[in-house]
Design a protein around this nucleic acid. Structure first.
Lengths: 115, 115
DNA sequence: GCAATGGTCAACTGTACGGTTGAATAATGT
DNA sequence: ACATTATTCAACCGTACAGTTGACCATTGC
């Protein structure tokens, strides 16, 4: 069930390469959500979002738990941490600047709403 | 010239999603290299590696500097750091464990030589 | 039971990607 | 000048991916 790490990194980074999926992750950072609720703010079909969620789940970035007829989506930080640790080795081991992170998130927000 | 951040993250994560390119980055972590030297340990054509290097350069993960007839490839930690910072926000802000990183690199190494 | 809601599956489309080969460009060595 | 080395370019191939639509389960409400 646990794929070799390089393959897992393939899945994780490929999953993160899509802006829609990154935006979904940011949404889940605030709260667990049902699939429909995740899909609501997007302009694409529910099926498309469902696929994106499958990609994120396969990468170990989220976990989906079906309860009744709704499927809850929950962030799974373990997948992300694996990739993050891998990447840290290239950044000259600088301490992480959380202010930077907030600015980045803001920049993404602006992009979603600008169009 | 500086693309909006989400687009940059697209490029960065997409570049990292390929195991060949991650392996190239690990090689460059040890030393700057000419294109041919980068290509040597791989079983694919030089042109293929050249393309991979272009992808990495476009993502801001490496920088290529042509001197004479050889093109030197050098790791550019800035691109990676941008993505790393973005990711840290999802990992519960845990401190980075460099021992983990070394184990990960080893795992990748094993995979390259296994076959 | 029946209709509505929540989500996935299947088939299709267009486009991007990883790889190949062969020719082209440019700098070096003799 | 000429051959060699270093690298890219161009055209092409197969496959994977993001999106669509429509049919297909489940589960809940009346």
């Amino acid at each position: 069930m646990n794929a070799p790490l390089p393959d897992r990194l393939d899945l994780i980074f490929a999953a993160l390469a899509d802006p829609t999926r990154r935006r979904v992750l940011s949404m889940l950072l605030e709260d667990d959500m049902a699939v429909s609720d995740v899909a609501a703010p997007f302009e694409m079909s529910l099926a498309a979002i469902s696929k994106h969620l499958s990609v994120l789940a396969a990468a170990g970035l989220i976990r989906q738990e079906r309860r009744g007829r709704i499927t809850w989506c929950k962030l799974d930080p373990d997948g992300m941490r694996a990739a993050s640790v891998w990447m840290q080795g290239f950044g000259q081991f600088d301490p992480v600047d959380l202010d930077d992170f907030e600015r980045f998130l803001e920049a993404e927000m602006q992009d979603w709403t600008k169009e």
